[in-house]
Design a protein around this nucleic acid. Structure first.
Length: 594
RNA sequence: GGGGUCGUAGUUAAGCCAGGUGAUAACGCCGGCCUGUCACGCCGGAGGCCGCCGGUUCAAAUCCGGUCGACCCCGCCA
């Protein structure tokens, strides 16, 4: 076998006249009886190879036996195509390689699906033959994009003085957070390691160690249910810095994305990114990860309806809930049939995928002469005036209302806002809208557990002025936490951490973690905080999600070489699999019957 | 744990609601012809336990029950 001198897809008119050796896979064969054309593909693209019986009889003869996905080595001369045979559809369409020698390096079975971008093949088949799926140019490109993103981030962080430090995968399970993946210890029967959900505590310890600026592009593991943008093992860009406050981490992050977008997409990002507090985000968008590519905003009308005669709204307000509206400019033309599809839980689920507990969506059509819709009749003139003012309504507008408990109202309107943002074509493709969401609550009440849990994680620092509230009104305490949201996707989150033992202990106390429990689970951290722990903070980015957005992929799976299915299985290797009973015995594990 | 969509040649789909004739098409595959194609073309051909198990029926791809698998969503994901 000779070494290839060029990549097929990288040849250009600059190479005309050169003698080249290529190796690649057969994309297509066009056997015209005399002359045979083979499109040869490698990771860079395809080039047309010509086998002419008058030029190279033996190569031509072999070329007639070639099939899809055979692996070939071709030696020949690059030449310019005559004008009428140029193919503008491929990058190398102005040239071709006139073959002189051909060797079949390997044959191939007929692939189960075509190796090309526009296929309509079931994903499970693609996953089972992932190595073939990854030969498709789009998938190859996704992996190359992933590599470039990682490379760009590494360069940036290194230039900013960050040190890459590896942290253990075999570590201990800590309470709070996601379900752990456990690894049994053979040497210590009955004990288990946990795979890290993130290197959180280790990076904090590295700050205590004085490393000052740490980063890692690292796998994390969470045993939770999968989604389009969630995998049980995923990659984080994890970083931590000492002697910083929120703004420092944010500015560093903005610089990272500026560079990334410049290098990978050729786009210049405007910084600083806009900021929204958690409260503003929920108020205006109904979610803490708003998609700012369209500027539909929600309007809180709870106060307008405090004394209303309209019973549905009145009851919601009286029961401590809220009434919020989503005004839609110029949508009074929306057909009644569509509005009817928003009535009843069953309809909302079926037509909008809304399963928030909302029973229906009230609506008003604003017309020049009168307001239309069942709700309109029940409203007083003052109420109408107030709604018009707050929503900025003009004739031709449509207003959707949801009333009830706060969480349900926001969740429902978030989904409706996103639905109509897309459906009404308000979404500019190819735009990237970043936003920082700040001032998250430190804690949230978990009715199932009957206690407060950390919204971000238990090591997040409260805002200093809120510390006294920890023991009195825990849900009013704001955290020094921040999320980075891009086009409605949470792509990163971080915080300033507790570097002082007394504050950390107060947070544990608010979380209902006893002194004994804290000692047992976090002894190493609590000790470290007593040996000169510097103020520090950081952030972790969802690397796969970032690549997904940059690559324009529909799912995180399309930017991961070997992803898992929704049931957390690898269809290629058939993991998870049963193991030999002797392996279990060594690990002191017995499987319970179902 | 829950809601939804889907499963028929290698692939993608039609047929299923209203059970009954050799289960249909396109692409792919195989063979033949063809010296400038690039969605090559033309001629011919092969290919199916209709996901699996069970039930109803004279008769099941079609109706019913279960099961397995893929995807989307809710819960969950600090």
């Amino acid at each position: 076998m000779k070494r290839p001198t060029h990549r097929c897809g990288s040849l250009s008119e600059d190479d005309v006249g050169k003698r080249v050796v290529l190796a690649g896979w057969v994309q297509t064969v066009r056997d015209l009886g005399g002359v045979v054309f083979v499109d040869l593909r490698d990771r860079a693209g395809v080039v047309q190879v010509v086998f002419n019986p008058e030029v190279a009889p033996s190569a031509h003869e072999v070329s007639q036996t070639v099939r899809s996905e055979y692996v070939l080595q071709v030696e020949g001369v690059v030449r310019r195509r005559s004008p009428e045979t140029v193919n503008p559809k491929i990058h190398t369409g102005t040239i071709e390689v006139l073959a002189e020698e051909l060797e079949i390096l390997n044959e191939s079975k007929t692939p189960p699906f075509p190796i090309e971008d526009e296929i309509d093949t079931a994903e499970n088949l693609r996953l089972r033959y992932r190595y073939l799926d990854l030969r498709r140019p789009r998938m190859t490109r996704n992996l190359l994009t992933r590599h470039r993103v990682a490379s760009s981030i590494r360069k940036y962080l290194e230039e900013e003085g960050f040190v890459e430090v590896e942290t253990p995968f075999l570590t201990r399970s800590t309470p709070e957070g996601a379900r752990d993946y456990l690894v049994p210890s053979r040497i210590q029967p009955g004990r288990f390691y946990a795979l890290p959900q993130s290197p959180q505590l280790f990076k904090q310890l590295l700050m205590v160690a004085g490393l000052d600026r740490y980063y890692q592009i690292v796998k994390c593991f969470r045993d939770e249910d999968l989604r389009r943008d969630r995998q049980p093992e995923f990659t984080q860009v994890d970083l931590e810095m000492t002697f910083v406050e929120e703004a420092d981490v944010q500015a560093l992050s903005e610089g990272m994305f500026q560079r990334l977008f410049h290098e990978v997409l050729g786009l210049e990002l405007q910084v600083p990114f806009p900021r929204l507090t958690y409260e503003e985000a929920l108020d205006r968008y109904g979610t803490d990860k708003p998609d700012l590519r369209f500027d539909l905003t929600l309007v809180d009308l709870t106060e307008v309806f405090r004394e209303t005669q309209f019973q549905l709204f009145a009851r919601a307000v009286k029961e401590g809930g809220m009434v919020k509206a989503l005004p839609l400019k110029g949508e009074a033309k929306m057909p009644r049939s569509e509005l009817d599809r928003m009535q009843g839980e069953e309809n909302l689920k079926r037509h909008y995928g809304i399963q928030t507990g909302a029973r229906g969506v009230a609506w008003i059509k604003v017309q020049a002469e009168a307001w239309q819709g069942p709700v309109a009749r029940a409203l007083s003139p003052q109420e109408k005036e107030e709604i018009q003012r707050r929503c900025g309504l003009e004739p031709g507008d449509l207003v959707l209302f949801v009333a009830g408990q706060k969480g349900m109202v926001n969740a429902t309107l978030d989904l409706l806002r996103t639905h109509f943002g897309r459906k009404l074509g308000l979404l500019e493709e190819g735009t990237y809208r970043f936003v920082w969401v700040t001032e998250f609550p430190l804690l949230e009440y978990d009715p199932d557990e009957g206690r407060y849990t950390a919204m971000h994680h238990p090591f997040t620092a409260p805002r200093p002025e809120d510390v006294p509230l920890l023991s009195t009104e825990p849900d009013k305490v704001r955290a020094r936490a921040y999320d980075l949201v891009l086009n409605g996707n949470e792509i990163g989150g971080g915080s300033i951490r507790n570097h002082r033992l007394d504050v950390q202990m107060k947070v544990f106390q608010a979380l209902g973690i006893s002194l004994e429990e804290a000692e047992e689970k976090f002894r190493f951290l609590l000790e470290a905080l007593q040996y000169g722990a510097p103020p520090h903070g950081g952030i972790a980015f969802g690397f796969d999600r970032i690549v997904m957005l940059l690559a324009g992929a529909e799912t995180i799976r399309d930017v991961i070489a070997f992803p898992k299915t929704q049931r957390a299985a690898c269809l290629l290797t058939e993991a998870p699999a049963e193991v030999d009973p002797r392996q279990l015995e060594e690990l002191w594990i017995r499987i319970l019957p179902k």
